[in-house]
Design a protein around this nucleic acid. Structure first.
Lengths: 294, 294
DNA sequence: ACAATAGTGTCTATTAGACATTATATT
DNA sequence: AATATAATGTCTAATAGACACTATTGT
């Protein structure tokens, strides 16, 4: 600690003693969790592999605002916990699992994004293995549900200006749980002026989704798609043992496109370790089980 | 707005009217700016190209805490401005330039990171072209200075455990402005347990740098190094017209390694547009000037 | 002429994509 | 036997790295 005196003649200790944070207006801060998993869909054909779906956990709000709407699990950051700790706490309270992959995504700070008061929200992404999730749902009274997440690019538009250009991408998110279907449309705008590019994300429409959570979901999906290409995070979505076809399926639903098996296997061989086990009763040639080589 | 009543029998409007944010403790929120530029060093040999340095703008603190220490420019987020707006305001007040590349980096929320009170800080990175920076420094009384930023990996350690492994990387940052040299040592720890990896950054030593700004700088440098590989952000550091050798120099000091000219030129040809101009009086073969193809 | 950089050609190794081929348990 | 997937081989195109070679200015 410095002994220097400030313009009021205070030492650092004296300054800190008289410091009163309450003299300034402060926003509230929350964490919001994007909890992704990949689950098997039921398949009636005994020969076919069960297709997989990317799922996201949502909570039905029991309070104002957005009462009855679905929202990302989250809550206010307490004064005695770090952001990571707050995120881990929320995660634990929803999934009952520790040791989950978790990563901070982005902090959303628009002035009017919450009707209650100024709320700044730090979003996190977590990836969980659906097999270890048998102990599903929390002890909370809240209604929680895994929604199948799909998306579609509705429109791509490029407008040229004299000092640059503008690119608009309109994306529709679809979140489905049983009969319930939530839709959201997000417009992503890239404005380029000279060498400068600015990107904004607007929620154009969001039926049944609370706050600006639709764009948080779109942002998280994009991050997941990017990171799966150059990191090993996909293994957080896998069971302890898995086949290379299952691993490929996970990559395919996240990236939204088919991959060639030969090239895929070449790319992941160094990341996995073969076990001596094989799948059984599959209706076709059995597949070797692998584990992640950490 | 929903007409549903909550458990207290309130409509959403009634709920919002009685909502009192002040009943909860709230942290303070700041933005901190990493403003990078690349500048020419003076070179006495008339034949040689001037070497470039990566520079970062720091402000000498005139108040407690960390009075007299150097800090990233930044300040509290006001209630009527978004995070991006707060960052743009800080940037304008230091550089007097608009239309600067700016990107949110990471939000730092450790409980004790500020001795005054609980402060959560959202860090941003900005890239500016040093040539357009002739109007340097702000009108503030603060002392601002561009520090040359270099770094060195001091140690890489890998410890195997039975349930995983730990990787520690110790990095020294050096910030130099004239005779002034600030040093900071950051320890980055990757803890892998099973399939789960968690990463932490600790400031081990930080002479003359305020708060936890050393790790913000290390994080920003890492992001810059990653993003320069797969995006066009480097052009934000260039003048309107530049030679391909200058562009290569910028890549080299950011990445910290030499690149082969032939391969580099192949990679950037689609990103640039040749002009009819050439450098003059260079002491060697003149070089064609290019501009960014946006 | 010389120093220093600018700019290009080419060989090689590596990698990704495309597609064909063989293998095998289950019903 | 039929089916669906598992697993591998091979050809091709594209790309990155290495390095040599030529070009061009100012002093």
């Amino acid at each position: 600690m410095s002994d220097q005196l400030d313009t009021n003649g205070f030492t650092e200790r004296q300054f800190l003693e008289q410091y009163d944070a309450s003299q300034f207006d402060r926003p509230s801060v929350t964490v919001d969790m994007l909890i992704f998993t990949v689950a098997n869909q039921v398949e009636n054909n005994y020969r076919k592999l069960p297709p997989k779906t990317l799922q996201l956990l949502l909570i039905k709000r029991g309070e104002h605002p957005y009462l009855g709407h679905w929202a990302l699990p989250g809550g206010f950051v307490q004064m005695n916990e770090s952001l990571d700790e707050a995120a881990a706490r929320e995660l634990r309270s929803e999934t009952n699992i520790d040791q989950i992959y978790m990563e901070q995504l982005y902090t959303w700070g628009d002035v009017q994004r919450d009707p209650r008061t100024r709320v700044i929200s730090c979003s996190y992404m977590a990836l969980v293995d659906s097999h270890s999730l048998l102990v599903q749902a929390g002890e909370d009274a809240d209604e929680a549900a895994w929604f199948d997440l799909t998306y579609q690019v509705l429109e791509e538009k490029k407008v040229n200006r004299n000092d640059g250009h503008e690119k608009e991408t309109t994306i529709e998110l679809r979140l489905q749980h049983n009969d319930m279907m939530l839709n959201a449309v997000i417009k992503i705008t890239n404005i380029t002026k000279g060498r400068n590019t600015r990107i904004t994300r607007e929620v154009m429409d969001s039926s049944g989704l609370a706050f600006d959570h639709a764009r948080m979901i779109q942002y998280g999906l994009e991050r997941l798609q990017n990171k799966i290409e150059y990191t090993d995070i996909a293994f957080n979505l896998m069971a302890e043992r898995f086949t290379l076809s299952e691993l490929q399926q996970v990559y395919e639903i996240i990236l939204g496109r088919d991959l060639l098996a030969a090239a895929f296997r070449r790319k992941v061989t160094d990341l996995v370790e073969p076990t001596d086990e094989y799948t059984k009763e599959a209706g076709h040639r059995p597949s070797r089980l692998y584990r992640y080589r950490s």
